[in-house]
Amino acid sequence: MHAIDYEAPTTLAQAVSILKAHGENARPFCGGTDIIVQLRAGVRRTEHLVDVKKIKELQTLFFDAKQGLRLGAAVPCIEISESDVMRRYYPGLTEAAHLIGSLQIQNRASVGGNLCNGSPAADTTPALIALGARARVVGPNGEREVPVEAFVVSPGRTVLKPGELLVELLVPAPAPHSSDAYLRFIPRNEMDIAVVGVGASLTLDGDKVKAARIALGAVAATPILAAKAADAIIGKKLDDAALEAAGHAASDACSPIDDMRGTAEFRLHIAAVLTRRVLSIAAERAKKN
């Protein structure tokens, strides 16, 4: 790895000031599970790593039944899968965090880092989009909130401008009779990169779907929100016909590529299959809430 400088500020103000001073030559640094590999391989270059793990706001995991979840950008995935609150109220996001890499990786990697890395195949990003999460960003010109579906702009690139950092993810409180789920397809049991990943959240009103969000990963240049797939089931009973329609609409929202993990044709097929399955799982969970 080329020479770098490293700083570990303890406040947001310090972090922003360091990031601003170095502009494009600095990057926030968290679990390191992507960026260290990228720096070593020369696919990213940065002069200054600003370790954000010592900043309190970024390490906060706070849930309130009315306000929802505040998930600090640096909270490691393992804390999510070990959290009873997360398993109870956000099982889909929890299963996405639990799928990332090995325990060694989950002990370091964070959901915020997964998002900022900007991979089209990030597991937790579709789960966040499905939940309607917003990203709270702080920078030299103050702060702003970005819907997670608008955060990644192209593979490896995000809306973060030089000097800005992701502070936390704000996830709405789950409505009564709602839940979420995440599924991905990989050719083995564990530890691979999604060929297709689908996250869904839905709210039931009796036997009908009152609200839903469906998001997909690894099927386009960025994780996507498939609004038409959700429209296909909203106001309807979640029967086979509705699931079929949602699967078709999800597949239509994809613009996948052929690569070593799967062909575009295969991805389109799997996107529909996983959409049907993930909606069924979310609905089963929602009935219990």
């Binding site: 490293y6 260290i36 590999v37 790593l49 325990l103 060694q104 002990n107």
Partner: peptide
Amino acid sequence: GRAVCSCLMLGVE
């Protein structure tokens, strides 16, 4: 107390 890959952590950390 947590298992991590020491190749993916900086010494300064």
